[in-house]
Amino acid sequence: MNMKPGVYMKEKKIKLIETGMKLFAEKGYHMTSVEAIAEGAGVSKGAFYLHFQSKKDFIVTAFRHYHQEITARVESVQKQNLAPRDSFAKQIEVVTKYIYRYKDFLMMHLYQNISIGENTDVFMKQMNAENFHWLRQNLNRIYGDKMAPYYPDMIIQLEGLISGYFKWIIIDDIHIERNQLGPYIVRRMDDIVSGLLEREETPLVTPDDIPEPYREEVPVSTILTAMKDKIDTLGLTPEKVRELEDVIGIMFTETGKDHPQKPVIQGLLVHFQRIPEFEQECQEMARLLHIQLLD
Results as ranks from 00 to 15, higher is better:
M1C: 05
N2A: 14
N2F: 14
Y8R: 09
E11G: 05
K13G: 07
K15T: 14
L16H: 11
L23P: 07
A25M: 06
E26V: 10
K27A: 08
Y29E: 03
T32A: 11
V34F: 01
A36D: 15
A36N: 10
A38N: 08
G40W: 04
G42A: 04
V43T: 02
S44F: 05
G46D: 07
F52C: 02
F52V: 05
S54Y: 01
F58S: 10
V60W: 06
T61R: 03
A62W: 02
F63V: 14
Y66M: 02
E69T: 12
V77P: 01
V77C: 06
N81H: 12
L82G: 07
P84W: 11
D86S: 13
F88R: 02
K90I: 03
Q91V: 08
Q91A: 11
E93R: 12
E93S: 11
K97T: 06
I99H: 05
I99A: 09
Y100M: 06
Y102A: 04
K103D: 01
L106A: 06
L106R: 01
M107T: 15
I114C: 07
I116T: 09
G117T: 08
N119F: 00
F123G: 02
M124E: 10
K125F: 06
Q126F: 12
N128D: 14
A129E: 00
H133V: 04
R136C: 10
G144Y: 07
D145I: 03
K146D: 13
K146P: 01
A148G: 00
A148V: 03
P149W: 03
Y151E: 15
Y151L: 15
P152I: 11
D153W: 05
I156S: 09
L158V: 05
G160T: 09
L161M: 14
L161V: 06
I162C: 12
G164T: 12
G164L: 13
F166V: 04
K167M: 13
I169Q: 03
I170H: 11
D172H: 10
I174H: 08
H175C: 07
R178C: 15
G182P: 01
Y184F: 15
D190P: 03
D191F: 07
L197P: 02
E198T: 15
R199I: 08
V205H: 10
D208P: 00
E212I: 13
Y214A: 12
E216Q: 15
E217Y: 10
E217K: 14
P219Y: 06
V220F: 01
L224W: 12
T225W: 05
M227C: 10
K230P: 08
K230V: 12
I231A: 05
L234M: 02
L234P: 00
L234A: 03
L234R: 02
L236D: 03
E239G: 07
R242N: 10
E243G: 02
L244C: 09
D246Y: 09
G249R: 11
I250C: 03
I250S: 06
T255K: 08
K257G: 05
D258Y: 14
P263Q: 08
V264S: 11
V264I: 15
I265Y: 02
Q266I: 04
G267Y: 04
G267E: 09
V270C: 10
H271M: 09
R274G: 00
R274N: 06
E277R: 15
F278A: 10
Q280I: 15
E281G: 06
E284G: 03
A286P: 09
L288Y: 05
L289T: 11
Q292F: 02
Q292L: 00
